[in-house]
Simulated scan of single mutants.
Amino acid sequence: MTSSAPPAVGVRTPWEALPTAVRAAIADVLGAPVVQAVTQTGGFSPGVAARVTTAGGRRAFVKAVSAEVNPVSPEMHREEARYAAALPFGVPAPPLLGSYDDGTWVALVFEDVAGRQPHVPWHERELALVLDAVGELSRALTPAPLDAPSVVEYLADGFQGWQQMIDDGDRGEGLDPWTASHLSYLAELAFPWTDLAVGDTLAHGDLRADNILLTADGRVVFVDWPHARRGAAPWFDLLIMLPCVRAQGGPDPEEVFAAHPLGRVAEPHAVTATLAGFAGFMIRNSRQPPPPGIPTLRAFQRAQGEAALQWLRKRLG
């Protein structure tokens, strides 16, 4: 299967466009002013995303955004600052070195990870490394080590996307004929997911290739934690990751899920209901106007939703 999802890219703000006060605050965190900044292109976050080097030779990763770029992104950065600071030692995530928030601009400064994103389309060996790491991440985050919003409460409405489409009078124009004619059935499948996907795990909530770094010594590091949510089933992150893997040239998600240790112990009805909810979440979102500064998001969501639907139909026989 070839990659069908568009690149995961947000509109980047150059380092030089950061206000002087923001750059000065970042220098305070790092102990010296930044003398080199290299913009990173992968990922949907708008604003600044750069690997930086200070006058003293210290390296870090900086992300910063203002409400002028995207009205939602500053609060996401604030949430990520809270969760990243609270992650326990040993979780494969970059340590947060410091943050800045003046009410308009929010900046996060992380330890730089000398790694790269996985190849897309996915390479078999790299996917195997990531799948093993997802299992280790689930074990490290069970029980949930920090107080984040409940995954069920946070996504209760979003995962009822099929029912919301019906309520909005959206008859699925432009979707494949089976999906368009089965909106009510899909809504019924998704309805009980809130009772079935619960657990004691902290989920990353947004595992994709652009949120993963591979290091030269074989480590897998998970970045971008604003969507961390507690109370998820141990298999939740694996389930929401696999449709994106499929949309980016990866293998059949049902085969991968069934072979994975987390998937083997998952209750089948819970998986089907949650998958139906995730598919509805992605398909409905993909039909909304694009958010400011993130031009490829809706097409990316459409590809994820379609991959989730294909997986769901396979489970349904």
Rank of each mutant, 00 (worst) to 15 (best):
M1G: 08
A5W: 03
A5C: 10
V9S: 04
V9E: 13
R12P: 06
P14G: 08
W15C: 12
E16A: 15
L18K: 01
P19Q: 09
T20C: 13
A21L: 14
V22W: 05
I26G: 02
A32I: 14
V34N: 08
Q36L: 15
T41R: 07
G47I: 08
V48A: 04
A49N: 10
V52T: 06
T53M: 11
R58H: 10
A60K: 00
E68I: 05
V69G: 01
V72W: 06
M76L: 14
A81C: 08
A81P: 05
A84I: 06
A85L: 11
L87E: 06
P88G: 04
V91R: 00
V91A: 10
S99C: 14
W105L: 05
V106Y: 10
V106M: 05
A107E: 03
L108Y: 08
F110I: 07
V113A: 04
A114R: 06
A114V: 11
G115W: 02
E126F: 07
L129S: 08
V130R: 02
G135W: 01
P143K: 08
V152S: 05
D157A: 15
D157M: 12
Q164N: 09
D167Y: 10
D168M: 15
R171D: 15
L175A: 07
P177A: 15
A180G: 15
H182Q: 13
S184L: 14
A187G: 15
A187C: 11
A187V: 13
L189M: 11
F191G: 12
P192Q: 10
L196P: 08
A197E: 10
A197N: 04
T201I: 11
L202N: 07
H204F: 12
G205L: 15
L207Y: 05
R208L: 15
A209Q: 03
D210A: 13
D210H: 02
N211S: 12
N211I: 09
I212K: 00
L213H: 02
L213Q: 02
L214C: 06
T215F: 02
T215C: 03
A216G: 07
R219C: 12
D224H: 07
P226I: 13
R229G: 10
R229Q: 15
A232P: 07
A233H: 09
W235G: 05
D237V: 09
L238Y: 01
D252Q: 03
V256K: 02
A259P: 03
L262R: 03
E267F: 11
A276E: 05
M282N: 07
R284A: 14
R287E: 12
P289C: 14
P289I: 14
P290Q: 11
T296E: 15
A299E: 15
A303I: 13
A307Y: 04
R315H: 05
